[in-house]
């Protein structure tokens, strides 16, 4: 238990592992493999850094204030109509 998957399977499950979409059992198996396999660990870190980079780029822009105000006004009108 915990050390039964090989590099090929760990690689195939990497995407789901990084998105926390594996069952707890599979997640534990992938994590165990990454702890004992340096090449897979390094690859995983590369993919994780790519995802972190994407997420951080996404968060740098947001809803403009004028749009926020416009929507608040429209919703207020809708609510008053109800």
């Amino acid at each position: 238990m915990g050390d039964s998957i090989d590099c090929r399977e760990a690689h195939a499950r990497l995407q789901d592992y990084l998105k926390q979409e594996l069952t707890p059992e599979l997640e534990a198996e992938v994590r165990a493999h990454l702890h004992r396999c340096a090449p897979c660990f390094t690859h995983c870190r590369f993919e994780a850094n790519f995802l972190l980079m994407l997420e951080s780029r996404a968060r740098r822009c947001g809803c403009p204030d004028r749009l926020r105000a416009r929507i608040a006004g429209l919703l207020q009108a809708e609510m008053e109509r109800d």
Binding site: R45, F46, M53
Partner: peptide, 12 residues
């Protein structure tokens, strides 16, 4: 890139 930039620092 695994030999030159294994951490993917170039993305940043």
């Amino acid at each position: 890139v695994e030999d030159v930039d294994p951490e993917g620092a170039f993305f940043s």
